[in-house]
Lab assay of single mutants.
Amino acid sequence: EQLARLKREFNENRYLTERRRQQLSSELGLNEAQIKIWFQNERA
């Protein structure tokens, strides 16, 4: 579920704002660094 949600977010926007990253962190139970790194890896 977390992965599917991250992929949906990535398809909508390849870059997250700090606020959006905080929201996802709270909703998915991941820390902000994990989300940031995931997005960086997807863009690579």
Rank of each mutant, 00 (worst) to 15 (best):
N31S: 15
L6C: 13
K36V: 15
R14E: 06
L16N: 03
S25L: 14
S26E: 13
E32V: 12
R43L: 14
S26Y: 12
E42G: 02
I37V: 10
L30C: 10
R43C: 11
F39I: 00
I37F: 09
E12R: 12
F10T: 02
N13W: 10
Q23L: 12
E32H: 05
R43Q: 10
N41V: 07
E12H: 11
E12A: 09
E1Y: 09
Q2M: 12
E42Y: 08
W38G: 01
W38N: 00
Q2G: 03
E9M: 04
E27K: 04
R43T: 11
R21H: 03
L28N: 00
E27D: 08
Y15W: 12
E18T: 12
N13F: 06
L3N: 05
A44F: 08
N11R: 11
E12Q: 13
S25V: 08
N31F: 06
Q23D: 08
Y15F: 13
A33V: 12
I35H: 00
R43D: 07
G29C: 00
N11F: 10
A4H: 06
A44R: 12
R19K: 14
L24D: 03
L24S: 00
R5L: 07
R14H: 10
N11W: 09
A44T: 10
R8W: 11
E27P: 02
L16R: 03
G29I: 01
I37T: 11
R21K: 12
Q34S: 10
K7N: 04
E12D: 11
L6E: 04
E12F: 08
S25T: 05
L28F: 03
E32A: 07
E9G: 01
R14W: 06
L24T: 00
E27M: 09
I35T: 00
E1V: 07
S26M: 15
A4C: 14
R8E: 12
N11P: 00
R21I: 15
L16E: 07
G29M: 06
I35K: 00
R14T: 08
E1M: 08
N31K: 09
T17A: 05
E32L: 09
R8F: 10
E32C: 06
N13P: 01
R5P: 01
T17Q: 03
A44C: 14
F39L: 04
E12V: 08
L30A: 00
F10V: 02
N41G: 06
L6F: 02
N31R: 08
N31T: 15
N13H: 09
R8I: 13
S26I: 14
N13I: 05
R43A: 13
E32T: 07
I35A: 03
S25H: 04
L30M: 14
S26P: 01
N31E: 12
L24G: 00
L16M: 08
E42T: 03
Q2E: 06
N11G: 11
F39N: 01
I35N: 01
Q23Y: 08
W38L: 04
L3K: 01
T17N: 09
K7R: 12
R20D: 07
I37N: 09
L3D: 06
L30N: 05
I35P: 00
L24Y: 00
L28M: 06
E27C: 09
G29Y: 01
A44V: 09
T17M: 03
L3R: 04
R19Y: 11
E42P: 00
I35E: 00
E32K: 06
G29S: 05
A4K: 10
Q22M: 08
Q34E: 14
G29W: 04
K36Y: 13
R43W: 14
G29A: 04
L16F: 03
E18R: 14
Q40P: 02
E27N: 02
N41A: 10
R43N: 14
L3M: 08
S25P: 00
N11K: 13
R43V: 10
L16W: 04
E1L: 08
L24M: 03
K7W: 08
T17D: 13
E18V: 14
Q40S: 11
R20K: 11
R20I: 10
A33S: 13
E42S: 04
R8Q: 12
E12Y: 07
R21P: 03
Q40E: 15
R5H: 09
R8H: 11
R14Q: 14
L16K: 00
F10H: 01
R19L: 12
L30F: 04
F10W: 05
L30W: 09
S25W: 04
I35Y: 01
Q40A: 11
W38Q: 01
L16Y: 02
R20P: 01
R8C: 13
A4M: 09
N13S: 06
E27Q: 07
S25E: 08
N13R: 04
Q23P: 00
F39T: 00
L28S: 03
E18D: 15
F10A: 03
E32M: 04
Q34V: 15
R14Y: 04
L28T: 12
K7V: 07
S25F: 05
L6V: 02
K36S: 15
R14S: 13
Q2L: 13
Q2R: 07
Q2A: 14
A33W: 15
F39H: 02
E9A: 13
G29T: 02
R8D: 10
L16G: 02
G29E: 06
E18Q: 14
E9K: 05
F10E: 02
L24V: 01
E9P: 01
L24Q: 01
G29Q: 04
F10P: 04
Q22N: 07
N13M: 04
A44M: 13
Y15E: 11
N11S: 13
R8L: 12
R20F: 07
Q2I: 15
N13T: 04
Q40H: 10
R14A: 12
Q40W: 07
L30E: 01
Y15H: 11
I35W: 01
T17W: 06
L6T: 06
L16S: 02
F39E: 04
S26F: 13
R21S: 15
Q2Y: 06
A33F: 12
S26K: 15
K36L: 13
E1S: 10
L3T: 07
N41D: 09
I35R: 00
L28Y: 02
L3H: 07
E9W: 02
S26Q: 14
A4W: 05
A44P: 02
K7F: 06
R8Y: 10
N41Q: 12
Y15V: 12
A4L: 09
K7C: 13
Y15C: 10
K7Q: 12
E9I: 05
N13V: 00
A33M: 14
F10Q: 02
E12P: 00
N13Y: 09
L3F: 07
E32Y: 02
R5G: 07
Y15R: 05
R20T: 08
Q34W: 15
I37A: 14
R14G: 09
Q22Y: 06
Y15Q: 06
N31Y: 05
E12T: 09
G29K: 05
A33L: 14
L16P: 14
R5V: 14
Q34M: 14
A4E: 15
L28C: 05
R19E: 15
E1H: 08
E42A: 10
L6D: 02
Q22S: 07
E18W: 06
I37R: 11
W38S: 02
N41I: 09
E27A: 07
R14M: 11
A33P: 03
N41W: 08
R20M: 12
K7G: 06
A44D: 12
L30P: 00
N31D: 15
G29P: 00
R8G: 04
N13E: 03
A44N: 14
I37K: 12
Q2D: 07
Q40M: 00
L24H: 00
E9N: 01
R21M: 15
I37L: 12
L24W: 02
N11T: 07
S25C: 00
E27H: 02
E1P: 04
A33I: 13
F39K: 00
A4V: 05
L6N: 01
L24K: 01
I37M: 11
I35L: 07
A4P: 03
Q34P: 01
R20A: 08
L28G: 00
N31H: 12
I37D: 12
L30G: 02
A4I: 08
E1D: 10
F39D: 01
T17H: 05
Q22I: 11
S25G: 09
N31L: 11
W38K: 03
N13Q: 03
L28H: 01
S26W: 13
A44S: 10
L3V: 10
L16V: 06
S26D: 12
K7M: 10
F10Y: 10
R21A: 15
L24P: 00
R20G: 05
I35M: 03
G29F: 04
E1W: 13
Q40F: 08
L24A: 01
T17Y: 03
E32D: 07
L6R: 01
N11L: 14
A44G: 05
Q2V: 15
N41T: 09
Q34N: 05
I37S: 11
F10N: 03
S25Q: 03
N11A: 15
L24E: 01
Y15N: 08
W38T: 02
G29N: 06
R20E: 08
L30I: 12
L30S: 02
R21T: 15
N41K: 10
W38D: 01
K36P: 01
E9H: 03
S25D: 02
L30Q: 00
W38F: 10
A44W: 10
Q2K: 09
Q2H: 08
Q40K: 10
Q2W: 13
F10C: 00
N31V: 05
A4Y: 05
